[in-house]
Amino acid sequence: MSQVDSNFFYSFPAVRGQQADRPFYIATCPLRIIPKIFMFDEEEVPAELRAQRSINKVRIPEITRYLVDNPKDYVFSALTASVEKNVTFIPSSQGSDLGTLHVPMEARILINDGQHRRAAIEEAIKEKPELGQDNIAVLFFVDEGLKRSQQMFSDLNKHAVRPSPSLSSLYDFRDSSAAVARSLALNVAPFVGYTEMEKSSVALKSNKLFTLSSIKQATQILLNKGSKASFTDEDLDLASEFWALVNVHIAEWQMVQAKEISPSELRQEFINAHGVGLQALGMVGHSLILQYPKDWQEKIAKIRDIDWRKANPVWDNRAMHHGRLSKTTTSIKLTANLLRKALSIPLTTQEQQLEDEFKH
């Protein structure tokens, strides 16, 4: 903070640029300053007078925890804000776009992108004050009124595309369940060479069978662990053993690996080439390991007798609805129930209740 002509202002190293004939500035700001310069009482300002969406307070603790738990290894993208026209840019030399940006303390600043990060930064600094010495980039646009700021928010967000669950799992090295899924995809049949690592679905003519995200979900179900749980080497060993054994007993998977049938042909005709079948197998695997911890490996062999063809009427209104594969949780559970019966696994009270409702 500096004082010039009796006016207090924030002073930031900055780069000046131009977009659509309008100036903008990329500044480096200490985290401790962020809560002070982005003050905003959304409860008193209706949506039509704001330049941002309401804060989803559920997201803030998760982002805060990420920041606090990874003080030496976090990454935050730049915040984007509109600032009133009375900012001053002082170039480091004549004609230079490198210099210092002066933002008066009383200047009105509207955040266009990053209000959840701003709130999380504020909470994280309370818990770990030393984070306040770190820096974050802030992209300042010169404000032309609230209408322009609202349009900026729309433009910034409508073109944003979230990465697919598979791609997120591929690149997320903090998520131990994603690490288990990656290891399975790279080392355990039937997944080796047949896993779609980037997309959330497998294309019709693709030479892949499963998505990385479906392997992750099915294995979470198998191990009875949520996405936020910690997955150990023992969990990976158990999952690897289970899926490798299942692979041995499913003839269709073996046929793909032997190049006797293409993955696209298998996906067209069989349920066990889709996430629904994979998650149902995960459910049955959990039941087997829970009820038969010493000999589940032997009991799983009966899977070889199951007719997985979509045309098989036993799947009607379970995995198949009106000739189409159903991905609902209820469909997966009903599919798992049929597999349990085939493997002579007693149904729990809850599973039996679902079965009774299905029959009526």
Rank of each mutant, 00 (worst) to 15 (best):
M1V: 13
S2N: 15
S6A: 11
F8K: 10
F8R: 13
F9I: 01
Y10D: 03
S11Y: 08
F12C: 06
P13S: 08
V15G: 09
G17R: 11
D21P: 11
I26T: 04
P30L: 12
P30M: 06
L31N: 11
I33D: 08
I34Y: 14
P35H: 00
K36A: 14
F38V: 02
D41A: 01
E42W: 11
E44Y: 05
Q52K: 12
I55M: 15
K57S: 08
V58F: 09
R59V: 13
I60Q: 07
P61W: 14
E62V: 14
I63H: 01
I63P: 02
T64C: 04
N70C: 07
N70R: 14
P71Y: 00
V75E: 10
S77E: 10
A78L: 10
A78M: 07
A81I: 03
T88G: 08
F89E: 05
I90W: 02
P91S: 01
P91Y: 01
D97P: 09
G99E: 05
V103F: 09
M105V: 10
A107D: 10
A107I: 00
N112T: 04
D113P: 01
Q115M: 04
Q115I: 02
R117P: 09
A119W: 03
I121H: 00
A124G: 12
A124P: 13
I125Y: 14
E130N: 11
G132Y: 06
N135E: 02
F141E: 03
D143T: 03
E144I: 12
K147R: 08
Q150L: 14
N157R: 01
P163I: 08
P165K: 00
S169G: 09
D172Q: 07
F173M: 15
R174L: 04
A178E: 07
A181L: 07
S183C: 08
S183I: 14
S183H: 15
L184D: 05
L186P: 01
N187A: 09
V188P: 02
T195Q: 02
S200Q: 09
S201E: 09
S201W: 14
S201C: 10
S206K: 06
S206Y: 05
K208R: 13
K208E: 05
L209W: 00
L209F: 00
S213Y: 13
S213F: 14
S214M: 06
I215R: 13
Q220P: 03
I221T: 11
L223N: 07
K225A: 13
K228H: 03
A229M: 04
F231R: 09
D237F: 13
N247Q: 10
V248Q: 10
I250C: 07
W253T: 15
V256W: 03
K259Q: 13
K259D: 14
S262N: 10
R267A: 12
Q268K: 15
A280M: 04
G282P: 02
G282K: 00
G285Q: 01
G285L: 09
H286N: 15
S287M: 12
L290R: 06
E298V: 12
I300E: 02
A301E: 15
K302Y: 11
R304G: 05
R304V: 14
R304S: 14
D305N: 15
I306L: 07
I306R: 07
D307N: 15
W308Y: 11
A311N: 04
P313D: 05
D316G: 13
H321F: 07
L325W: 04
L325V: 14
K333H: 01
L339P: 00
K341E: 10
I345E: 00
P346I: 00
P346M: 00
Q352L: 01
K359V: 07
H360A: 07
H360S: 12
